[in-house]
Structure formats: structure tokens, C-alpha cells
Design a protein around this nucleic acid. Structure first.
Lengths: 101, 101
DNA sequence: AAAACCTATCGTATATTTGCGATAAACATT
DNA sequence: AATGTTTATCGCAAATATACGATAGGTTTT
């Protein structure tokens, strides 16, 4: 490939902010998070009902938000309850605030 | 293709926020904007000196930031002076603030 | 006019993202 | 044990993003 073989490193805060921004870089994920902010928590199925995309795609977006640390899932068999991860949410909020002055 | 033929629509604010987030979704672009925040303005060459990537790649990232409306270029022959677009910056700031409560 | 300088764009290669249907996995209920 | 419910994952296809070198298009300087 033509891309650099070694991963380019930036400052920790820069990388962290970019990572959070990436998690927010799709309207579906924004919609999910807005929904979670209102409901505080919800099940995957609730989102599937609300969003205009398939269940598997919703699940994939949830996975990304989970990987970014913005949400967390709790087993409530047979469902899974998703909530915002308040700690990381606060971290993201702070990073964006600092960034925008 | 397997993806939906029609573009899925979300609320205007949701789309706008996702678009700004996408522009911020790469550490290089965060680094560029941070640099611009300090300097208020700079030339492309300044960024090429500072960043660990090639000139063409820097230019590409600048283009994306310009497309997102976060920066603007002004011809200062033979250079181009880039500054933050204060209006859109404020819009983005507000959107993120509202989003994070 | 020629040379030098600065930046954007083109062409290319690769990686990642997005989306779907199908299927699997986990658990509860019957 | 069999069935139903719910969600994650797999496999695939297409679009988008990332990166580079080479080149083109301006402008200034010589």
C-alpha cells in the first residue's frame, strides 16, 4: 500500500477527541445518542422501531458507540439495556468544550 | 449495491452535527484546527512543516475542513492564508454544546 | 523569459465504513 | 425438549476515506 506503514502519532487529547468525533460522525449514531439522552436508557428493539434502518445495522452502530465508550450495555434477558456511559460522556463533553474554547 | 437506494434523512440538526463531527473525525484535522486556533491563521506550508504527513495529504485535509465550512482560504499570493470560519465555528460549537447538554 | 516557489488536483492503492440479509447465540417460555 | 424472542455476528457488496508521488496551475523573483 501507499499509506505510511507506521501509525502516525498525535497528542493524546488530539487522538481522543478525533476518536469521539468519529463515533459521532454519522447521523444514525447522533440520533441514537439523542434518543438515549431523552430516555436515559433503552433496548435495541426500541431503536430498531424508531430508526429507518435494519436491525443488523442498528446493532453495528451500537457496537461502534460501545467501542468508543459512549454507551454501555446491560443484560436484561432476553433484552439488552443500553445507557450512556456517563464517565466517558463527561470526558467527551470536556474535550469538545476545551476544543471550541 | 446492497445499501439503501434512497438517502436516509434525519433531522436537520442531527445531520449538521454529524457533518461537523465527521470533519473532526481525524487527528490530523483536529491538529490543524488546534493550530489555527492558536495562530488564528496560517499558510498551508506552515502545516506541512508541522505535520508528519505529505503536502498533498495536508491539502486534502484542508479541503475537507473547507467543505465542512470550518475554515476558509484567502489568497495571499503566492500563498494561501487559512483561517477558521468564525460563523460556522460558532454554529458547530453551539450544536456540540446543545448535544452534550 | 526563465526559474523558483507554493498549493491544488490527479491517479492510484489500500483501508475503513456503511448497509443488508441470513444466521447464530443467548435466554425465557411453553 | 421445543419454540419464540431478542440481539449480535457473519458474509458480502458498494461507497467513502486516507495516503502518497507526480503533476499542473498560479505567482513571484531573478
Amino acid at each position: 500500500m501507499k499509506r505510511s506503514l507506521e501509525h502516525i502519532e498525535y497528542k493524546e487529547d488530539t487522538e481522543a477527541l478525533a476518536k469521539f468525533a468519529k463515533a459521532l460522525a454519522h447521523p444514525t449514531r447522533i440520533a441514537i445518542l439523542k434518543y438515549l439522552e431523552n430516555q436515559s436508557c433503552c433496548f435495541t428493539g426500541d431503536l430498531v422501531d424508531v430508526l429507518p434502518i435494519s436491525q443488523s445495522t442498528v446493532s453495528q452502530h451500537l457496537k461502534e458507540l460501545k467501542n468508543a465508550g459512549l454507551i454501555q450495555g446491560e443484560l436484561k434477558p432476553p433484552k439488552i439495556k443500553y445507557c450512556i456511559n456517563q464517565d466517558n460522556w463527561k470526558t467527551a463533553k470536556t474535550l469538545f468544550q476545551q476544543f471550541f474554547d
